[in-house]
Design a binder for these strands. Structure first.
Lengths: 215, 215
DNA sequence: AACAATATAGTGGTTAACCACTATTGTCCT
DNA sequence: AGGACAATAGTGGTTAACCACTATATTGTT
């Protein structure tokens, strides 16, 4: 059994490290690399790997975003999330969105190898050291409950779009990257605006920038 | 000329990446690795390398601590500090303590190579992208010096306009409120954009929202 | 007197976002 | 089988922001 694996991390040197480790595992074929979340998403669609090893914090889309979106589309790729966050919130979020592996970035090389093998054979794998580091989730600061409630009525696709808007990515670019029509994204934007009860030019951009850190 | 280099990082996978990059540079001999600051210090004393590539955040001693301590003892090793910190304070501290190279962890592989070559030949090397990252980091909390300098080249009228833009007031509304023509405000906006070195649709809005609290 | 900076105002054009619709497909739930 | 929802895609139109110019009056400085 040969597993197709792709990796994604926005830190080139760290990605070199992952590449070195992954490509030396027997039974694994490294079939692609990405430097941000959108690239990773496209790479997964085009190569349909068995396993995707994704950094959590990447530009444009997080590893968890990518995981969620791909699994939503009923693909069979299994996800391993790498992160330096010792925050329980991220761990819970990743597992809830369907990740099969969760590793801290200071994990040993052997752990990454074990994780890929375990996840490859269909099992879940969580860094043994993670329990020690899990701390209370203290994040969601200035997200007013009312706004939060509205935001949570958005569908996964709509949330992705808000996120991309917050990174100054235009409707056309979003459309290109998600392989859908510009009209579709405009439709989503209109639905989002309606749900969030906002109106006027750039109102979605303003919302997205305002709550950027909390999305 | 063959440079002896040691590397130190507490993240095994990242260290694998550094090892891969460093050991493939012609004229460089990788002669040791360490996983924390104390190990790095001992390794430097025992191998007396030409260059030490040190992570800033390591257990026991930081990369800067090691740099300071070794240089205090009049050794000839030159130091390159790797970090994910986008905070000017760390950069200033490292340079003050005698580091010859300073690289962000999301630098390209080529940058690490250039850095080692430059530092090897006695020059200093600072990541060209570091200014951008300093700007990005300080966005929410502080007013980066570089941006502040640009902002202060604006005339009083221009500053007023930036402020009004940050409050979601349109060009037409600003014109009405200041009893001047819409064209005048558009002209001011163009001048502001030029002075702040920004371009593209909504870029002024984005700038204004980003620095809203500090204007 | 010459110059630079500032504020004013204009023309003419491009583009991205938004608005208001309609419409089809597929899934999930009852 | 029917209904709700989600995602897809389209047409046609409006508007705000931006871009690239030119131009004039005022003020302050060298």
């Amino acid at each position: 059994m040969l597993y197709k694996v792709i990796i994604a991390d926005d830190h080139p040197v760290f990605r070199t490290g992952i590449r070195e480790v992954v490509s030396n595992i027997a039974g694994v074929e490294l079939c692609g690399e990405a430097g941000d979340g959108l690239e990773a998403y496209q790479l997964i669609l085009s190569t349909l790997p068995d396993i995707a090893v994704l950094d959590l914090d990447m530009p444009k889309l997080t590893g968890i975003d990518v995981c969620e979106k791909v699994l939503n589309e009923k693909h069979n790729t299994r996800f391993i999330i790498l992160t330096m966050h010792k925050d329980r919130h991220f761990f819970d979020d990743a597992m809830h969105k369907g990740a099969m592996g969760y590793l801290l970035k200071d994990s040993a090389v052997d752990e990454l190898v074990s994780c890929i093998k375990e996840v490859g054979s269909g099992k879940k794998y969580v860094s043994p050291t993670i329990e020690n580091y899990l701390t209370e989730y203290t994040a969601s600061e200035h997200f007013p409950e009312s706004v939060k409630a509205l935001y949570n009525t958005l569908t996964p696709t709509e949330k992705i779009i808000v996120k991309l808007v917050s990174q100054s990515i235009t409707t056309q670019e979003i459309a290109d990257n998600l392989f859908v029509s510009k009209n579709t994204i405009e439709n989503h934007r209109a639905n989002i605006a309606r749900k969030l009860k906002i109106e006027g030019k750039n109102s979605l951009l303003k919302f997205a920038l305002l709550y950027k850190k909390l999305l």
